[in-house]
Amino acid sequence: MDYKKIADDVAQKILSYSQDTSGWKVAKSTKDITVSWKPSNEYPGNIYRGEGILLEIPEKVIPYVSGQI
């Protein structure tokens, strides 16, 4: 199994969601974070995305985002 290709395909799909600006509806919003959703084109149900700004240096944030902690 070509795990590199699978990972690259998943990364590309996630990037396409973040660049897609159409059809998203706000599910919840605070002063720091917005969670949006829209129907999935790939499976029954919805996809969700969270957006926010983290006021911290990358060295402290990246381990949490990458699952290293």
Rank of each mutant, 00 (worst) to 15 (best):
Y64F: 13
K38F: 07
K25N: 06
E59A: 14
I53F: 14
P44K: 08
D2A: 08
I62M: 14
R49L: 09
S18E: 13
Y48K: 04
G23R: 13
V26A: 03
V10R: 05
G45F: 06
T30W: 05
D2W: 05
G23Y: 09
A11E: 12
K4F: 06
D9G: 02
R49A: 03
A11P: 03
I57N: 12
I62C: 04
I47P: 00
S66I: 15
A27K: 12
S40E: 04
I57H: 15
A27V: 14
Y43E: 09
I33F: 10
K13T: 09
I62H: 06
K38H: 00
S22H: 09
I6R: 05
T34F: 02
D8L: 03
S22V: 11
Y3A: 13
W24H: 02
P44Y: 03
S66L: 15
Y3W: 13
G67I: 05
Q19C: 07
S29T: 11
I62D: 03
D2V: 01
P63V: 04
Y43S: 07
L55P: 00
L54N: 01
I57V: 12
P44D: 11
S36E: 15
V61A: 07
A7C: 05
Y48W: 13
K28N: 06
E51L: 12
E51W: 06
I6Q: 07
A11W: 09
I33Q: 03
Y43A: 11
V26C: 02
I62G: 01
P63M: 03
D8H: 09
L55D: 11
Y64Q: 10
A11C: 08
K5A: 09
T21W: 00
K4C: 03
S36N: 06
L55F: 07
E56L: 09
A11I: 10
S36P: 02
I47G: 00
M1E: 13
Q19K: 14
R49N: 02
I33V: 11
V61I: 15
R49H: 08
S40R: 10
E42N: 09
V61N: 04
K5N: 13
Q19G: 01
W37C: 02
P44S: 07
Q68G: 06
A11D: 08
S40K: 12
I57K: 15
D20N: 15
L55Y: 12
V35P: 00
K5E: 09
I69P: 00
D9A: 12
Q19E: 12
K31S: 09
I47M: 07
I47H: 00
P39L: 10
K60I: 08
P58H: 05
V61D: 13
Q19H: 12
P63K: 01
V61Y: 05
P39N: 10
I47L: 04
P44T: 03
K38T: 01
A27W: 11
S40W: 11
E56C: 06
D20K: 11
G50H: 07
L15M: 11
G50C: 13
E51P: 00
N41G: 07
D8T: 02
R49K: 15
P58M: 08
P44C: 02
Y48N: 03
I14C: 10
V35C: 08
T21K: 15
G23P: 06
K4P: 00
S22E: 11
P44I: 06
D32T: 09
E42S: 07
A27C: 07
S29V: 10
T34V: 15
L54V: 13
P44H: 05
Y64L: 11
V10S: 08
